[in-house]
Nucleic acid binder design. Structure first.
Lengths: 210, 210
DNA sequence: TCCCGGCCGTGACATTTGTCAGGGGCCGGA
DNA sequence: TCCGGCCCCTGACAAATGTCACGGCCGGGA
Protein backbone atom coordinates (compact mmCIF):
# COMPACT_ATOMS: atom_id res chain seq x y z
CA UNK A 1 0.00 0.00 0.00
CA UNK A 2 2.91 2.29 0.74
CA UNK A 3 4.96 2.23 -2.39
CA UNK A 4 7.72 4.20 -0.80
CA UNK A 5 6.20 7.27 -2.39
CA UNK A 6 4.68 10.16 -0.45
CA UNK A 7 3.58 9.11 3.04
CA UNK A 8 0.16 9.83 4.51
CA UNK A 9 0.17 13.21 6.25
CA UNK A 10 -1.45 13.23 9.69
CA UNK A 11 -2.85 15.86 12.02
CA UNK A 12 -3.29 14.94 15.69
CA UNK A 13 -5.74 16.67 18.02
CA UNK A 14 -5.92 15.68 21.67
CA UNK A 15 -6.00 17.89 24.72
CA UNK A 16 -3.63 15.71 26.71
CA UNK A 17 -0.15 16.61 25.57
CA UNK A 18 1.29 13.34 26.77
CA UNK A 19 -1.07 11.09 24.81
CA UNK A 20 -0.79 13.37 21.83
CA UNK A 21 2.96 13.03 21.82
CA UNK A 22 2.76 9.33 22.48
CA UNK A 23 0.39 8.82 19.58
CA UNK A 24 2.75 10.79 17.39
CA UNK A 25 5.60 8.52 18.40
CA UNK A 26 3.50 5.44 17.78
CA UNK A 27 2.37 6.49 14.33
CA UNK A 28 5.77 7.78 13.32
CA UNK A 29 7.08 4.24 13.62
CA UNK A 30 5.14 3.42 10.47
CA UNK A 31 7.16 4.45 7.48
CA UNK A 32 4.15 5.27 5.35
CA UNK A 33 2.82 7.72 7.93
CA UNK A 34 4.08 11.12 8.96
CA UNK A 35 2.71 13.46 11.59
CA UNK A 36 2.69 16.97 10.20
CA UNK A 37 0.75 18.79 12.92
CA UNK A 38 -0.37 18.53 16.54
CA UNK A 39 -2.94 20.64 18.33
CA UNK A 40 -4.43 20.57 21.80
CA UNK A 41 -7.68 22.42 21.23
CA UNK A 42 -10.65 21.84 18.97
CA UNK A 43 -10.68 25.35 17.62
CA UNK A 44 -7.09 25.04 16.44
CA UNK A 45 -7.87 22.13 14.16
CA UNK A 46 -9.06 24.02 11.08
CA UNK A 47 -6.42 26.79 11.13
CA UNK A 48 -3.64 24.27 11.61
CA UNK A 49 -5.08 21.97 8.95
CA UNK A 50 -5.14 24.89 6.50
CA UNK A 51 -1.47 25.40 7.12
CA UNK A 52 -0.28 21.80 7.06
CA UNK A 53 -2.74 20.22 4.61
CA UNK A 54 -3.00 16.74 6.19
CA UNK A 55 -4.53 13.74 4.46
CA UNK A 56 -6.08 12.38 7.64
CA UNK A 57 -6.98 14.09 10.93
CA UNK A 58 -7.13 12.17 14.20
CA UNK A 59 -9.51 14.02 16.49
CA UNK A 60 -10.32 13.38 20.12
CA UNK A 61 -13.90 14.09 21.14
CA UNK A 62 -13.21 15.67 24.51
CA UNK A 63 -11.35 18.88 23.81
CA UNK A 64 -11.48 22.45 25.03
CA UNK A 65 -12.57 25.19 22.65
CA UNK A 66 -14.53 22.97 20.31
CA UNK A 67 -15.43 19.33 20.76
CA UNK A 68 -14.19 16.78 18.27
CA UNK A 69 -17.58 16.39 16.60
CA UNK A 70 -17.92 20.08 15.91
CA UNK A 71 -14.31 20.17 14.78
CA UNK A 72 -15.11 17.35 12.36
CA UNK A 73 -17.93 19.33 10.78
CA UNK A 74 -15.77 22.41 10.46
CA UNK A 75 -12.89 20.49 8.98
CA UNK A 76 -15.10 18.74 6.44
CA UNK A 77 -16.24 22.12 5.22
CA UNK A 78 -12.82 23.76 5.22
CA UNK A 79 -10.84 20.85 3.73
CA UNK A 80 -13.22 18.35 2.10
CA UNK A 81 -10.35 16.17 0.92
CA UNK A 82 -9.08 15.59 4.43
CA UNK A 83 -10.56 12.48 6.03
CA UNK A 84 -11.40 12.42 9.71
CA UNK A 85 -10.78 9.60 12.15
CA UNK A 86 -12.33 10.22 15.55
CA UNK A 87 -10.48 8.72 18.49
CA UNK A 88 -12.13 8.88 21.86
CA UNK A 89 -11.88 7.67 25.41
CA UNK A 90 -15.54 6.93 25.87
CA UNK A 91 -17.43 4.47 23.75
CA UNK A 92 -20.65 6.41 23.95
CA UNK A 93 -23.18 5.35 21.37
CA UNK A 94 -24.27 8.91 20.68
CA UNK A 95 -20.72 9.95 19.96
CA UNK A 96 -20.39 7.50 17.11
CA UNK A 97 -23.68 8.55 15.60
CA UNK A 98 -22.90 12.23 15.85
CA UNK A 99 -19.40 11.75 14.51
CA UNK A 100 -20.65 9.92 11.45
CA UNK A 101 -23.35 12.50 10.85
CA UNK A 102 -20.70 15.18 11.08
CA UNK A 103 -18.76 13.52 8.28
CA UNK A 104 -16.16 11.39 10.03
CA UNK A 105 -14.79 8.41 8.12
CA UNK A 106 -13.86 6.38 11.16
CA UNK A 107 -14.42 6.02 14.87
CA UNK A 108 -11.99 4.30 17.22
CA UNK A 109 -12.07 3.88 20.99
CA UNK A 110 -8.90 4.23 23.01
CA UNK A 111 -9.40 0.70 24.22
CA UNK A 112 -8.42 -0.78 20.88
CA UNK A 113 -4.97 -2.35 20.53
CA UNK A 114 -2.30 0.10 19.50
CA UNK A 115 -1.31 -1.97 16.49
CA UNK A 116 -4.67 -1.45 14.84
CA UNK A 117 -4.47 2.33 14.82
CA UNK A 118 -2.10 2.60 11.89
CA UNK A 119 -4.31 0.25 9.90
CA UNK A 120 -7.34 2.32 10.73
CA UNK A 121 -5.54 5.38 9.45
CA UNK A 122 -4.64 3.64 6.23
CA UNK A 123 -8.16 2.40 5.70
CA UNK A 124 -9.61 5.81 6.28
CA UNK A 125 -7.11 7.33 3.91
CA UNK A 126 -8.09 4.78 1.30
CA UNK A 127 -11.67 5.99 1.49
CA UNK A 128 -13.00 3.16 3.63
CA UNK A 129 -15.01 3.49 6.79
CA UNK A 130 -13.63 2.26 10.10
CA UNK A 131 -16.01 1.58 12.94
CA UNK A 132 -15.70 -0.35 16.17
CA UNK A 133 -18.13 -3.23 15.60
CA UNK A 134 -19.17 -3.56 19.25
CA UNK A 135 -19.94 0.09 19.42
CA UNK A 136 -21.83 0.07 16.15
CA UNK A 137 -24.17 -2.59 17.48
CA UNK A 138 -24.69 -0.69 20.68
CA UNK A 139 -25.42 2.45 18.74
CA UNK A 140 -28.15 0.80 16.76
CA UNK A 141 -29.61 -0.64 19.92
CA UNK A 142 -29.54 2.60 21.85
CA UNK A 143 -30.83 4.72 19.01
CA UNK A 144 -30.81 8.46 18.76
CA UNK A 145 -31.55 10.69 21.68
CA UNK A 146 -35.20 10.62 22.70
CA UNK A 147 -34.76 13.98 24.36
CA UNK A 148 -36.23 17.12 22.96
CA UNK A 149 -34.01 20.14 22.44
CA UNK A 150 -35.13 21.93 25.55
CA UNK A 151 -34.94 18.84 27.66
CA UNK A 152 -31.37 18.36 26.55
CA UNK A 153 -30.56 21.95 27.34
CA UNK A 154 -32.10 21.78 30.77
CA UNK A 155 -30.30 18.54 31.54
CA UNK A 156 -27.04 20.00 30.32
CA UNK A 157 -27.43 22.99 32.57
CA UNK A 158 -28.51 20.83 35.49
CA UNK A 159 -25.24 18.95 35.10
CA UNK A 160 -23.45 21.81 36.82
CA UNK A 161 -25.54 21.35 39.94
CA UNK A 162 -27.89 23.81 41.51
CA UNK A 163 -31.54 23.97 42.36
CA UNK A 164 -34.51 24.31 40.06
CA UNK A 165 -34.59 28.02 40.81
CA UNK A 166 -30.99 28.34 39.63
CA UNK A 167 -31.76 26.52 36.41
CA UNK A 168 -34.85 28.62 35.80
CA UNK A 169 -32.83 31.80 36.22
CA UNK A 170 -30.01 30.58 33.99
CA UNK A 171 -32.40 29.50 31.24
CA UNK A 172 -34.92 32.33 31.59
CA UNK A 173 -37.71 29.87 32.25
CA UNK A 174 -40.31 29.41 34.92
CA UNK A 175 -39.51 26.98 37.70
CA UNK A 176 -42.51 24.88 36.80
CA UNK A 177 -41.35 24.57 33.22
CA UNK A 178 -37.92 23.49 34.31
CA UNK A 179 -39.48 20.88 36.53
CA UNK A 180 -41.63 19.65 33.68
CA UNK A 181 -38.68 19.31 31.33
CA UNK A 182 -36.68 17.52 33.98
CA UNK A 183 -39.55 15.21 34.70
CA UNK A 184 -39.93 14.40 31.01
CA UNK A 185 -36.20 13.75 30.71
CA UNK A 186 -36.26 11.49 33.75
CA UNK A 187 -39.13 9.55 32.25
CA UNK A 188 -37.55 9.18 28.83
CA UNK A 189 -34.19 8.10 30.17
CA UNK A 190 -35.77 5.58 32.48
CA UNK A 191 -34.00 7.17 35.42
CA UNK A 192 -35.38 7.71 38.88
CA UNK A 193 -33.50 10.87 39.66
CA UNK A 194 -32.36 14.05 38.12
CA UNK A 195 -28.80 12.96 38.78
CA UNK A 196 -29.58 9.57 37.36
CA UNK A 197 -31.01 11.08 34.20
CA UNK A 198 -27.90 13.17 33.75
CA UNK A 199 -25.70 10.11 34.10
CA UNK A 200 -27.72 8.11 31.59
CA UNK A 201 -27.84 10.91 29.06
CA UNK A 202 -24.15 11.59 29.45
CA UNK A 203 -23.22 7.95 29.06
CA UNK A 204 -25.19 7.78 25.83
CA UNK A 205 -23.63 10.92 24.46
CA UNK A 206 -26.87 12.85 24.39
CA UNK A 207 -25.49 15.92 26.09
CA UNK A 208 -22.97 17.07 23.50
CA UNK A 209 -22.73 20.56 22.03
CA UNK A 210 -21.24 22.70 24.82
CA UNK B 1 23.33 9.15 32.72
CA UNK B 2 22.92 6.27 30.32
CA UNK B 3 26.37 4.89 29.90
CA UNK B 4 25.31 2.50 27.22
CA UNK B 5 25.07 -0.13 29.90
CA UNK B 6 21.84 -1.78 31.05
CA UNK B 7 18.80 0.33 30.22
CA UNK B 8 16.06 1.21 32.69
CA UNK B 9 13.37 -1.47 32.69
CA UNK B 10 9.81 -0.14 32.58
CA UNK B 11 6.37 -1.51 33.37
CA UNK B 12 3.35 0.32 31.92
CA UNK B 13 -0.13 0.14 33.43
CA UNK B 14 -3.01 1.92 31.74
CA UNK B 15 -6.47 0.62 30.96
CA UNK B 16 -6.61 2.21 27.53
CA UNK B 17 -4.72 -0.08 25.21
CA UNK B 18 -4.11 2.65 22.68
CA UNK B 19 -2.53 5.04 25.15
CA UNK B 20 -0.56 2.22 26.70
CA UNK B 21 0.87 1.22 23.35
CA UNK B 22 1.53 4.80 22.40
CA UNK B 23 3.40 5.45 25.62
CA UNK B 24 5.44 2.34 24.99
CA UNK B 25 6.34 3.62 21.54
CA UNK B 26 7.23 7.02 22.94
CA UNK B 27 9.46 5.69 25.68
CA UNK B 28 11.09 3.09 23.46
CA UNK B 29 12.51 5.90 21.38
CA UNK B 30 14.89 6.62 24.28
CA UNK B 31 17.81 4.30 24.08
CA UNK B 32 18.34 4.13 27.82
CA UNK B 33 14.77 2.96 28.39
CA UNK B 34 13.12 -0.35 27.61
CA UNK B 35 9.53 -1.38 28.18
CA UNK B 36 9.49 -4.87 29.61
CA UNK B 37 5.81 -5.23 30.52
CA UNK B 38 2.38 -3.78 29.84
CA UNK B 39 -0.82 -4.40 31.76
CA UNK B 40 -4.34 -3.02 31.52
CA UNK B 41 -5.61 -3.69 35.01
CA UNK B 42 -4.49 -2.63 38.45
CA UNK B 43 -4.54 -6.12 39.87
CA UNK B 44 -2.16 -7.36 37.20
CA UNK B 45 0.57 -4.95 38.22
CA UNK B 46 2.17 -6.94 41.03
CA UNK B 47 2.08 -10.38 39.34
CA UNK B 48 3.52 -8.95 36.15
CA UNK B 49 6.13 -6.96 38.05
CA UNK B 50 7.21 -10.13 39.86
CA UNK B 51 7.78 -11.76 36.49
CA UNK B 52 9.51 -8.93 34.68
CA UNK B 53 11.32 -7.17 37.53
CA UNK B 54 11.08 -3.58 36.27
CA UNK B 55 13.09 -0.69 37.68
CA UNK B 56 10.27 1.80 37.32
CA UNK B 57 6.50 1.31 37.03
CA UNK B 58 4.28 3.85 35.29
CA UNK B 59 0.82 3.52 36.78
CA UNK B 60 -2.40 5.21 35.73
CA UNK B 61 -4.78 6.05 38.56
CA UNK B 62 -8.02 5.13 36.84
CA UNK B 63 -7.91 1.40 36.25
CA UNK B 64 -10.25 -1.54 36.65
CA UNK B 65 -9.52 -4.17 39.25
CA UNK B 66 -7.38 -2.00 41.48
CA UNK B 67 -6.80 1.73 41.23
CA UNK B 68 -3.31 3.06 40.69
CA UNK B 69 -2.90 4.23 44.26
CA UNK B 70 -3.73 0.84 45.71
CA UNK B 71 -1.51 -0.77 43.09
CA UNK B 72 1.29 1.54 44.21
CA UNK B 73 0.99 0.38 47.81
CA UNK B 74 0.93 -3.26 46.78
CA UNK B 75 3.89 -2.85 44.49
CA UNK B 76 5.94 -1.06 47.12
CA UNK B 77 5.42 -4.00 49.43
CA UNK B 78 6.06 -6.69 46.82
CA UNK B 79 9.05 -5.08 45.11
CA UNK B 80 10.52 -2.35 47.32
CA UNK B 81 13.31 -1.65 44.85
CA UNK B 82 10.91 -0.78 42.06
CA UNK B 83 10.08 2.93 41.93
CA UNK B 84 6.60 4.10 41.04
CA UNK B 85 5.69 7.01 38.78
CA UNK B 86 1.98 7.75 38.77
CA UNK B 87 0.59 9.13 35.53
CA UNK B 88 -2.98 10.34 35.53
CA UNK B 89 -5.56 12.14 33.48
CA UNK B 90 -6.97 14.18 36.30
CA UNK B 91 -4.95 16.61 38.33
CA UNK B 92 -6.94 16.01 41.46
CA UNK B 93 -5.21 17.32 44.56
CA UNK B 94 -6.19 14.28 46.62
CA UNK B 95 -4.68 11.93 44.08
CA UNK B 96 -1.24 13.43 44.47
CA UNK B 97 -1.42 13.27 48.25
CA UNK B 98 -2.65 9.72 48.29
CA UNK B 99 -0.10 8.62 45.71
CA UNK B 100 2.76 10.03 47.73
CA UNK B 101 1.45 8.51 50.93
CA UNK B 102 1.23 5.18 49.14
CA UNK B 103 4.91 5.38 48.30
CA UNK B 104 5.02 6.79 44.79
CA UNK B 105 8.21 8.59 43.78
CA UNK B 106 6.59 10.79 41.16
CA UNK B 107 3.31 12.16 39.94
CA UNK B 108 2.71 13.39 36.41
CA UNK B 109 -0.45 14.65 34.72
CA UNK B 110 -1.21 13.67 31.17
CA UNK B 111 -1.19 17.33 30.24
CA UNK B 112 2.56 17.55 30.52
CA UNK B 113 4.61 17.68 27.34
CA UNK B 114 5.59 14.28 26.00
CA UNK B 115 9.26 15.15 26.01
CA UNK B 116 9.35 15.48 29.77
CA UNK B 117 8.13 11.99 30.47
CA UNK B 118 11.40 10.24 29.76
CA UNK B 119 13.19 12.71 32.01
CA UNK B 120 10.67 12.08 34.75
CA UNK B 121 11.33 8.37 34.46
CA UNK B 122 15.08 8.92 34.70
CA UNK B 123 14.74 11.18 37.71
CA UNK B 124 12.52 8.71 39.49
CA UNK B 125 14.93 5.91 38.70
CA UNK B 126 17.75 7.99 40.13
CA UNK B 127 15.89 8.20 43.42
CA UNK B 128 14.58 11.73 42.99
CA UNK B 129 11.02 12.84 43.41
CA UNK B 130 9.04 14.24 40.48
CA UNK B 131 5.98 16.32 41.15
CA UNK B 132 3.93 18.69 39.04
CA UNK B 133 4.58 22.03 40.74
CA UNK B 134 1.14 23.51 39.95
CA UNK B 135 -0.54 20.51 41.40
CA UNK B 136 1.66 20.48 44.46
CA UNK B 137 0.59 24.01 45.32
CA UNK B 138 -3.04 23.16 44.81
CA UNK B 139 -2.68 20.13 47.01
CA UNK B 140 -1.33 22.17 49.86
CA UNK B 141 -4.12 24.69 49.42
CA UNK B 142 -6.90 22.14 49.27
CA UNK B 143 -5.60 20.05 52.12
CA UNK B 144 -6.60 16.57 53.09
CA UNK B 145 -10.15 15.35 52.99
CA UNK B 146 -12.30 16.86 55.74
CA UNK B 147 -14.68 13.94 55.40
CA UNK B 148 -14.94 11.26 58.01
CA UNK B 149 -14.63 7.65 56.97
CA UNK B 150 -18.34 6.96 57.03
CA UNK B 151 -19.18 10.17 55.25
CA UNK B 152 -16.79 9.19 52.49
CA UNK B 153 -18.33 5.77 52.26
CA UNK B 154 -21.85 7.12 52.11
CA UNK B 155 -20.89 9.64 49.46
CA UNK B 156 -19.11 6.99 47.47
CA UNK B 157 -22.17 4.79 47.51
CA UNK B 158 -24.46 7.70 46.71
CA UNK B 159 -22.38 8.29 43.60
CA UNK B 160 -24.16 5.40 41.91
CA UNK B 161 -27.50 7.12 42.29
CA UNK B 162 -30.47 5.92 44.27
CA UNK B 163 -32.53 7.12 47.14
CA UNK B 164 -31.67 7.37 50.80
CA UNK B 165 -33.52 4.12 51.39
CA UNK B 166 -31.30 2.39 48.82
CA UNK B 167 -28.16 3.72 50.47
CA UNK B 168 -29.37 2.69 53.90
CA UNK B 169 -30.02 -0.82 52.68
CA UNK B 170 -26.69 -1.07 50.89
CA UNK B 171 -24.75 0.19 53.91
CA UNK B 172 -26.81 -1.51 56.60
CA UNK B 173 -27.60 1.80 58.22
CA UNK B 174 -30.73 3.60 59.24
CA UNK B 175 -32.15 6.15 56.81
CA UNK B 176 -31.76 8.88 59.36
CA UNK B 177 -28.09 8.10 59.81
CA UNK B 178 -27.51 8.16 56.08
CA UNK B 179 -29.21 11.54 55.92
CA UNK B 180 -27.05 12.80 58.74
CA UNK B 181 -23.85 11.69 57.06
CA UNK B 182 -24.94 13.19 53.77
CA UNK B 183 -25.86 16.43 55.46
CA UNK B 184 -22.49 16.57 57.17
CA UNK B 185 -20.71 15.88 53.89
CA UNK B 186 -22.70 18.57 52.14
CA UNK B 187 -21.80 21.02 54.85
CA UNK B 188 -18.10 20.17 54.85
CA UNK B 189 -17.74 20.32 51.09
CA UNK B 190 -19.55 23.62 50.92
CA UNK B 191 -22.03 22.14 48.48
CA UNK B 192 -25.73 22.77 48.37
CA UNK B 193 -26.74 19.39 47.05
CA UNK B 194 -25.97 15.78 47.41
CA UNK B 195 -24.97 15.73 43.77
CA UNK B 196 -22.91 18.85 44.31
CA UNK B 197 -21.13 17.29 47.26
CA UNK B 198 -20.30 14.23 45.19
CA UNK B 199 -18.85 16.40 42.43
CA UNK B 200 -16.73 18.42 44.81
CA UNK B 201 -15.44 15.37 46.64
CA UNK B 202 -14.70 13.60 43.41
CA UNK B 203 -12.87 16.57 41.92
CA UNK B 204 -10.65 16.73 44.98
CA UNK B 205 -9.92 13.04 44.91
CA UNK B 206 -11.60 12.34 48.22
CA UNK B 207 -13.60 9.39 46.98
CA UNK B 208 -10.85 6.95 46.14
CA UNK B 209 -10.66 3.35 47.35
CA UNK B 210 -13.09 1.35 45.19
C1' DT C 1 -10.68 9.87 85.55
C1' DC C 2 -13.35 12.87 82.45
C1' DC C 3 -14.08 14.81 78.05
C1' DC C 4 -14.28 14.97 73.17
C1' DG C 5 -15.08 13.25 68.74
C1' DG C 6 -16.64 9.86 65.63
C1' DC C 7 -20.36 6.84 65.00
C1' DC C 8 -25.31 5.21 65.12
C1' DG C 9 -29.92 6.06 65.87
C1' DT C 10 -34.63 8.70 66.55
C1' DG C 11 -38.04 12.10 65.51
C1' DA C 12 -39.69 16.32 63.66
C1' DC C 13 -39.48 19.98 60.45
C1' DA C 14 -38.96 23.07 56.14
C1' DT C 15 -37.48 22.79 51.58
C1' DT C 16 -36.80 20.74 47.28
C1' DT C 17 -38.04 17.54 43.90
C1' DG C 18 -40.82 14.88 40.85
C1' DT C 19 -45.55 14.12 39.08
C1' DC C 20 -49.90 15.19 37.28
C1' DA C 21 -53.68 17.76 35.14
C1' DG C 22 -54.60 21.45 33.09
C1' DG C 23 -54.19 25.72 29.67
C1' DG C 24 -52.42 28.50 25.57
C1' DG C 25 -49.26 29.50 21.47
C1' DC C 26 -46.55 28.00 17.53
C1' DC C 27 -45.48 25.32 13.44
C1' DG C 28 -45.52 21.62 9.91
C1' DG C 29 -47.65 17.75 7.81
C1' DA C 30 -51.92 15.15 6.51
C1' DT D 1 -58.24 22.99 7.52
C1' DC D 2 -57.36 20.19 11.60
C1' DC D 3 -54.16 17.47 14.19
C1' DG D 4 -50.04 16.45 16.70
C1' DG D 5 -45.77 17.65 18.69
C1' DC D 6 -43.02 20.84 21.04
C1' DC D 7 -42.78 24.72 23.91
C1' DC D 8 -44.16 27.62 27.90
C1' DC D 9 -46.78 28.45 31.86
C1' DT D 10 -49.85 27.54 36.21
C1' DG D 11 -51.19 25.21 40.34
C1' DA D 12 -51.38 21.50 43.44
C1' DC D 13 -49.82 17.29 45.43
C1' DA D 14 -46.90 13.34 47.33
C1' DA D 15 -42.39 11.93 47.96
C1' DA D 16 -37.67 12.63 48.73
C1' DT D 17 -34.18 15.51 50.67
C1' DG D 18 -31.66 18.33 53.89
C1' DT D 19 -31.50 20.27 58.64
C1' DC D 20 -31.75 20.27 63.49
C1' DA D 21 -31.88 18.76 68.24
C1' DC D 22 -31.51 15.03 70.87
C1' DG D 23 -29.56 10.66 73.10
C1' DG D 24 -26.47 6.62 73.48
C1' DC D 25 -22.17 3.83 72.49
C1' DC D 26 -17.36 3.59 72.11
C1' DG D 27 -12.10 4.68 72.23
C1' DG D 28 -8.24 7.73 72.89
C1' DG D 29 -6.01 11.56 74.82
C1' DA D 30 -5.61 15.24 78.52
Amino acid sequence: MSGGSTPIRLLLADDQALVRGALAALLSLEEDLTVVAEVGRGDEVVPEARRSAPDVALLDVEMPGLDGIAATSALRVALPTCRVLVVTTFGRPGYLRRAMEAGASGFVVKDTPARQLADAVRRVHAGLRVVDPTLAAETLATGASPLTERETEVLRTARGGGTVADLARALHLSEGTVRNHLSAAIGKTGARNRADAIRVAERNGWLLGE
